[in-house]
């Protein structure tokens, strides 16, 4: 607590460069965009330039399209985060064992994560192609399908294709996180449990799981934020189709701004997305604090 003033000056010195860049870039756009949500600036509207108050928010929240978009966004966010977390943990447990080849596996597992999203999206689109995609060819060869399927052209499968592509790329990140957490566990605890007659499953739930819980929370928070505002992969793989089955809030924001010229509506959507993400993060942080205190 000594030298409060000096501390503050020191902090200011350390913070200034970062804050200058971040706020220098975003402060005006953030405020301008917020004004856009309150004033109708849509160039095609007959009410252009009029103060709209909260009517854009109200209209957006009342539209069924918004809730459908939100549902699809949550579908993507929850399914891929859950898959990545569960698969990540299972793979980490496997890679934490000692068997021939595990060292190589540990170093190649990271490769998908390093592949750029644009490349990942294009690659899966190519592999899932209904007319000549390699996935169709393999499945047909294995007699799992009788003829080539249109995975990206079917509303029932399109979202899952994107989830698949995203999970393939991002699970390695979870694996790395979990692996390090697992390696922090003292092996003698397992020995002791085994002596006490605990099976593999029991020691997983009573030793492993509690130990990786904080890691899990971090992964979930990080990935939720990223996924909620994911754009590139949708733009590359499906552009919201088929029959809107992959139209997320973020993609709709893009459509409203750059196709429909509804700038105010797009600004409102963007603010709602940021609010939703902030809300989710707050909930997670609460949960994490409770965990720490427990």
């Amino acid at each position: 607590m000594r030298l409060r003033k000096g501390e503050e000056r020191y902090a200011a010195g350390l913070l200034t460069p970062a804050m200058l860049i971040v706020f220098g870039v975003i402060i005006i756009p953030i405020i301008t965009t917020f004004i856009y949500t309150l004033v109708n600036i849509d160039p095609l509207s007959s009410h252009q330039g009029e103060f709209a108050g909260l009517s854009f928010y109200i209209r957006t929240l009342r539209s069924s399209e918004f809730w459908a978009d939100l549902g699809r966004t949550l579908h993507f966010t929850i399914a891929s985060t859950a898959l990545e977390t569960i698969l990540g943990l299972l793979i980490a447990v496997l890679l934490n064992q000692k068997f021939p080849g595990v060292a190589i596996l540990r170093s190649i597992i990271i490769i998908p994560w390093a592949i750029p999203t644009v490349v990942n999206g294009s690659l899966w689109k190519l592999m899932l192609n209904g007319e000549y995609g390699v996935i169709n060819a393999v499945l047909e060869k294995l007699h799992l399908i009788s003829s080539y399927q249109s995975w990206l052209g079917n509303p029932k499968t399109a979202m899952w294709c994107i989830i698949l592509a995203d999970t393939w790329k991002m699970t390695p990140l979870a694996v790395i996180f979990f692996l390090a957490a697992l390696q922090g566990i003292d092996q003698s605890i397992y020995e002791a449990a085994r002596v006490d007659g605990a099976g593999a499953l029991k020691s997983f739930f009573s030793i492993t799981f509690p130990a990786v819980r904080p890691t899990m929370m971090v992964i979930i928070v990080m990935r939720t934020v990223e996924k909620f505002k994911a754009f590139d992969i949708f733009y590359l793989m499906t552009r919201g189709g088929p029959a809107n089955s992959t139209k997320t809030l973020m993609y709709d924001t893009y459509l409203q701004a750059f196709t429909n010229l509804n700038f105010s509506e797009a600004a409102t959507l963007a603010y709602l997305i940021a609010l939703a993400v902030a809300l989710l993060t707050l909930v997670y942080i609460r949960l994490m604090r409770r965990e720490e205190n427990a």
Partner: peptide, 20 residues
């Protein structure tokens, strides 16, 4: 072709060009 639902112009071209 049921896969038409995932196709844009260039996919149509390549399907035609592949003799399908």
């Amino acid at each position: 072709n049921p896969k038409s639902l995932e196709m844009i112009e260039d996919d149509v071209l390549s399907t035609f060009a592949a003799g399908n």
